[in-house]
Design a binder for these strands. Sequence first.
DNA 1: TGGACTTCTATTGTATACAAAGCACAAAGG
DNA 2: CCTTTGTGCTTTGTATACAATAGAAGTCCA
Lengths: 224, 224
Amino acid sequence: MSRASDRAYSQIRSMILSGQLAAGAQIREEHLADACGVSRTPVRDALRRLEAELFIRRNDSQRSFVADWSLEDLEDAFTLRGMLESHAAARAATRISERQLHALQAENDALRVAITRPSPDVLAFLEHNRRFHEIIVEAAASEKLENLLSRIVEQPVVWRTAQHYDRENLLRSCREHDEILAAFSRNDEVWASSVMSGHIRRAFHSYADAHRSDAVIALSVAAE
Amino acid sequence: MSRASDRAYSQIRSMILSGQLAAGAQIREEHLADACGVSRTPVRDALRRLEAELFIRRNDSQRSFVADWSLEDLEDAFTLRGMLESHAAARAATRISERQLHALQAENDALRVAITRPSPDVLAFLEHNRRFHEIIVEAAASEKLENLLSRIVEQPVVWRTAQHYDRENLLRSCREHDEILAAFSRNDEVWASSVMSGHIRRAFHSYADAHRSDAVIALSVAAE
DNA sequence: TGGACTTCTATTGTATACAAAGCACAAAGG
DNA sequence: CCTTTGTGCTTTGTATACAATAGAAGTCCA
C-alpha cells in the first residue's frame, strides 16, 4: 500500500464512503491529485479501479461521477450477494480447513465481545464481520467467485444507523454466524448455504427498515 | 473505439484470445506498446481493464502474465455464469419489452440460418449467440448483474473444436433459445430461468467433451 | 565452497508537458 | 426569437523522461 496509486485508491475510496465526495458529484482528476498529493497518473489508475468496482461511473464523454445507488439498486446488490455468498458457503462447507474454521470462530468470538459491552463497538463489529465473510470466500477456493464478490460487497451509501445497529440486530448476526459455523463443522453444504442466504437477506431488510429512520451516518454497506 | 487505450485494449485482448500471447506468458508493457503502435500510458490503461476481467494476472511484484485457466476453473466459471444468467433470465421474463423480444427472435433466426447452411458459419453463430445473451442481460435491467456477467462470459482458452461445433450441438443451442423465447413470451420466470440454467450447463459439458478431442482452434468461450 | 552482499539490468511507477476533445456561452444569421 | 456556429475554457488522453524496485548475476570474504 505504499505505491502512490494505492494510496490514491484507498484515499479516494474513503472519500466516497465517508460522503466527502457526494453521490452524483463530478470528479476531476487534477482536484483529486492535489487532494492526495500525487500526480494525475496514479489518480487515473485509482479511478479505473474504482470504476470497475462501480464506485464511479463515467458518462459518454469520459467524465467521472460518484455512483449514486437507489434503494432498488441496493436490493439488487443484496440479491446478487446473497446468491454468490450462499454459493461460497456451500463450497466452503466441504473445503474449509481446521485452521480456517478456527479463524472463523475467533472472528465471531471477537465480534461478540465487541457488541456485548455496554456501548457496542460498531466499527469493531464491522471489521470482524468483514473478516468472517472474507474467510468463507477464501475457503470456497474459487478465484472467479472471489473476484465477483469483491465488486459488490461494499457500496457507497449514506446510511441511517438508528435501527440498524441496535444490539438486537447485531446479536442476531452473531447467532447466525454461529449457525454457519455449525454447518461448516459438519461439512453440510445445504445447511451452510441456506443459513447464509437468509443471513444476507435479513441484513437487507435491516437496511431497508433503517432507511426510514432519522440519524444519518456514512458507512460502507459491509455488515452481516 | 478510437482512443489509443481502446485500440490497445481490443488488440491485446484479441492477441490473448487468439493465442498469439500464450497463456502463462509474461507481459511487458513496452513490448505491447510497440506492437500496438502507442506509448506505454494507454497500454497500462488497457492492462488494468484486462486485469479486472481476469484475462491477466499480476504477481506480487507487479509483473503481468496472461491468465491460464484449468478445466476446473472453466467449470467454476460456467457454474457462476449459469447462476447469474438464469437469474438474468428470470428477471428478463417479467421485464422484457416487445421490441427486445423481437430482437431476440431476429438474432435466433439469424443464428439458425448461419448453422443450417451446408457448411455452418461458426463465427456468425458465435456473434448472434453473443447478442442473444446480451439482449437478455439488458432486459434484466440490473446494472450490477450486467457488470458481473461482463467479467465471466468470455475467457481465454485454446479450444478444441471438433466435437463442440458440430451441427448437432449448434442446433440444440438454437432449440434451447426457442424455448427461452417461449418462456419470455409467456412471462414465465421459472421456466425461463430453468431452461437457461440447463442451457449453460449443457454448454459446459460440450466444452468438457471437446476437451478430449484433437483439432485445436483458438476461440473465446462465448458460445451457448 | 557457501553464503551474504553488491551491482547491474529489466520492468514497472510517477511526474510533467502537451494534445485532443467536450462543453458552455456568446454572437450572428435566419 | 430560435437555431447555429464559433471561440475559449475545462477536462481528459497520450507521450516521454526519469525514478524506484525487484530479480539475477557476480563478487568477495570467511
